[in-house]
Design a protein around this nucleic acid. Sequence first.
DNA 1: GGAGCGATGTCCT
DNA 2: GGACATCGCTCCG
Length: 199
Amino acid sequence: MPRRTILSRAFYEHPPDAVARALLGKLLVRRFERRILAGRIVETEAYFGLDDPAAHAFAGKTKRNAVLFGPPGFAYVYFIYGMHFCLNISCEPEGQAGCVLLRALEPVEGIAAMTQLRGLAQHGSSRLIASGPGRLCQALGITRETHNGIDVTSSRSGLHIEDDGWLPPEIAVTPRVGIRKAAERPLRFAMAGSRFVSR
DNA sequence: GGAGCGATGTCCT
DNA sequence: GGACATCGCTCCG
């Protein structure tokens, strides 16, 4: 069993495309009702700040997106389309508003609990448990109320990211999904060939 | 397996 | 008032 270490704040203090790429293969770990829910990150997207029309931070700092302008390594959770949450991790030094959207996980631990949180049949495929940003949040029980603004570099937060030494063999780079503005920029990163990548 | 579409709350103009 | 970093269902091939 290889040693697992929690990613430190320095890991996130870089441009979002670099962090998005580096997060592939890491483990997103959530403590939930005394159990551990965890999955390997297989898909991410990078969002910049004032120079990225697709980013929430593009129009400047507001009450909703304030976390993005703070220090790196904090969760930015927002509510979208009236029913879904999306989880981002802030990056770049304080004052710069980059972030990484976590889009899909390969479930690793706590699969029965994640299946239940998703409302799926217990013995079905695990492919759809966390393949998409809304599904990922539902599978881990992540909401804006419970997780926006928490520090993901602390083991006490109940949500953090670990490195167990595993590295993805091949990374595919494509345009980002579901956006209208700046839709051509290649800022989506995925583990090539993974069944757990969305759409 | 893919296109079309409705559901639904929050934020900013 | 409109847009929205989505999902799951239908209908069609």
